[in-house]
Write a protein that binds this DNA or RNA. Structure first.
Length: 706
DNA sequence: TTAGGGTTAG
């Protein structure tokens, strides 16, 4: 009978039905009272994921030993139920059962996943009391626990206690330094590990290390690591390949990522597909990520939440609107709409669609039951990007008053909104708050602060924020400062900063060059601007985009070189977009090239009949020329097409209150006094400027605003 | 009969 049971126990490991039969047979022949038999059945139930059956059997066992308790603790840890495991562990000790190395290592694994440093320290005390700190299993679990809790020094101490650390101990320690992004120490440890003959570097060593190499500046290091992987014969390890796909994509080499992905062939797993889809998506190769998603479907690979998050993030433009909406349908069908990460990606997708203001994104956000920081940040960024800055500020205030955590993304979004609203007082308050919360040094927060101060006219405070940056390698901070000076008319300072940026080897991007072209334009540095545009590809390896052409058209226009601007547009390798054409229309108007302006305007009216800009420009041009009939025709056309001019609003912040007004606005209760004051000021300016050569035209702006 | 580390999301 015992021989039959032993053989049943062996064969029941691969089928739940067989396990049930074995359990029944064990009950029938009274073998469940045998602690060895019950422990094996208990373990099998847990391996099949039937924790309820396992716990019932555990409760019914007349006798339990350490293996029974450890198996149950392990079962609860595997499904993330640390509280249950902790209760079992406490009961185990109360019952006087011997707590051994197995108990500690399983419990520590759960504590590490939950990042419960407080519990970890308690267990560490018990480990020392029991004399298990030298045990390689317990010791490695302690290293892992401290590493996951980001206590790398404690992890190092625990590592030093292990009498003979093996590769798992080393890997856990290295992963700890990876977690806190201490690249130097992580690679130093790798070097030490390599020198130890007793331990071998494996997939568990390289997979976490590779996640650190997520920037083009690590491209060479990544290639060296890849070479080491090849030398050690680890190039077919799936976790290494998956990490390598992400690293190559993050380092800017999607082609290398694809090579690794292709090299995997049939051994690809879901993570490989997800990583490749995300890699294509990050590098604007949206179509390739859509193709891969379709291929996944063709290969009957079931997409998971990572897949949907990645593919939804790839849908950002007008051309992806319909596919994005289909994906939303698929997400609903799969019952994943309430998964926070998936829903967050959908919210960001709807925000980036050009049509519709925020309604789709907002209703999705509101229906999401479990919102995290990303959800709030996405919706605030959306408000900020869509020009609904007041709403972004309101959401931020709500988060603060509700004691919901705010992070660097939230600060960045709200400071950008303060910049948009030009609300200096609110911006200063947010600045103080960011300092208090230690987010001031974050590069995104700093660049938003620079943006806010320069938009509010306090360029010297923007400079103070810039000067306080500890790491001067943040491209976005340099960009913000250069743009700030350019918009303030201090183009030469912008150009000086640009030289410093080049000398200090700070990475440039397309935004830097747009800012420099703007600086040249606002300072009349025509030759410098043109040279920069011509050398973008050869010197800076950046392909000119539409905004660069628009900035250069503006530069030429401000210098009155309308024909040069026309030549530039004609020589563009891509057909000019409406932004370039609208800039050129402004140039034609300013230079009095009526015929050319009319041609450009007609073209714009054809491609963008709904945009009020062209109608307003034409109308102003005809007013200037006193061509009343043509002006009336434009007005008629606007009426027929239902196009409305969006009034230009101005605002002023008084005692933390924003007062908005537009041209000829007389709604303010004190408007009589306000207009009287303007009249007085205007007279005073005329009197002051009579010696300085200012003419009436320079005062028109003042009159127009009010 | 029960243990430890590693890869994908703004």
């Amino acid at each position: 009978m015992k021989a039959l049971l032993a053989s049943l126990l062996e064969s029941s490991l691969n089928s739940f039905q067989k396990l049930s039969v074995t359990h029944c047979y064990a009950i029938k022949c009274g073998s469940v009272s045998d602690i060895y038999v019950s422990n094996r059945i208990l373990d099998s139930y847990i391996k099949f994921g039937f924790l309820g059956y396992a716990h019932k059997l555990f409760d019914e066992m007349p006798q339990r030993d350490s293996v029974s308790w450890n198996t149950m603790i392990s079962g609860y840890i595997s499904c993330g139920k640390l509280e249950n495991s902790w209760c079992l562990f406490t009961d185990m000790k109360r019952c006087g059962c011997y707590v051994d190395g197995y108990s500690f290592s399983r419990l520590l694994k759960g504590i590490a996943s939950a990042k419960r440093f407080d519990l970890g320290e308690q267990v560490h005390g018990l480990v020392i009391k029991g004399g298990y700190e030298c045990n390689v299993y317990v010791g490695s679990s302690l290293v892992d626990m401290y590493a996951k809790c980001e206590r790398v020094e404690d992890a190092f101490e625990a590592f030093m206690e292990i009498s003979e650390p093996n590769s798992v101990s080393w890997n856990a320690l290295i992963a700890g330094f990876v977690q806190v992004r201490d690249i130097e120490t992580a690679f130093w440890l790798l070097g030490l590990m390599e020198m130890k003959a007793a331990v071998t570097m494996d997939d568990g060593t390289f997979a976490p290390l590779l996640t650190l190499l997520d920037d083009p500046m690590f491209c060479n290091l990544l290639k060296q690591v890849h070479a080491k992987v090849l030398k050690l014969g680890l190039e077919h390890e799936i976790t290494i390949c998956n990490a390598m796909i992400s690293s190559y994509a993050d380092c800017g080499s999607v082609s290398d990522a694809k090579r690794v992905f292709d090299g995997l062939g049939g051994s690809r797993d879901l993570i490989s597909w997800n990583s490749m889809i995300a890699g294509f998506s990050k590098h604007e190769q949206k179509e390739s990520s859509f193709e891969l998603f379709t291929e996944m479907h063709r290969n009957w690979i079931e997409a998971d939440i990572y897949t949907y998050t990645g593919i939804v993030s790839a849908c950002s433009g007008e051309e992806h609107q319909s596919f994005g909406k289909s994906l939303h349908g698929l997400v609903i069908k799969k019952g994943l709409e309430q998964v926070t990460s998936v829903s967050n990606a959908l919210v960001s997708m709807y925000i980036q669609f050009p049509t519709g203001v925020m309604n789709d994104a907002l209703s999705l956000f509101e229906s999401l039951k479990s919102k995290d920081l990303v959800s709030w940040n996405s919706i605030m960024t959306g408000f900020s990007q869509k020009g609904l800055s007041e709403d972004a500020v309101k959401f931020f205030s709500y988060l603060r008053s509700s004691n919901i955590e705010v992070d660097d993304y939230a600060f960045s979004a709200v400071l950008r909104s303060c910049a948009d609203l030009a609300t200096l007082q609110l911006g200063q308050q947010t600045h103080a708050l960011s300092t208090k919360s230690s987010f001031e040094s974050n590069e995104f927060v700093t660049s938003s602060l620079i943006l806010m101060y320069s938009k509010c006219g306090v360029i010297e405070n923007a400079r103070k924020c810039f000067d306080q940056i500890s790491s001067k390698h943040s491209t976005i901070a340099w960009n913000a400062m250069i743009l700030g000076y350019a918009q303030h008319g201090s183009g030469q300072v912008s150009l000086d900063l640009f030289s410093q940026m080049c000398n200090q080897n700070v990475k440039l991007d397309h935004v830097t060059l747009t800012a420099i072209l703007t600086a040249c334009s606002h300072t009349g540095l025509i030759q410098e601007g043109l040279e920069l545009l011509n050398s973008m590809e050869s010197v800076y390896k950046i392909q000119p985009r539409m905004e660069h052409y628009a900035a250069t058209v503006d530069l030429l226009g401000r210098a009155g070189l309308v024909n040069k601007a026309k030549e530039l547009i004609e020589s563009m390798p891509l057909s000019p977009d409406p932004m370039v054409m609208k800039t050129f229309l402004g140039v034609c108007r300013a230079c009095g090239e009526i015929e050319m302006a009319t041609q450009v305007a007609n073209h714009l009216l054809e491609i963008e009949p709904e945009d009020h800009f062209t109608y307003v420009s034409l109308s102003h041009m005809y007013s200037d020329l006193k061509k009343w009939e043509e002006k009336a025709n434009v007005k008629k056309m606007m009426k027929e097409r239902g196009v409305k001019k969006v009034p230009g609003w101005s605002w002023i912040e008084i005692r933390n209150q924003v007062n908005a007004f537009n041209a000829e606005d007389r709604s303010h209760p004190l408007s009589k006094e306000i207009y009287l004051m303007i009249e007085n000021l205007t007279q005073e300016m005329q009197w002051l400027d009579s010696d300085n050569g200012f003419d009436q035209a320079s005062l028109m702006g003042v009159n127009f605003v009010f």
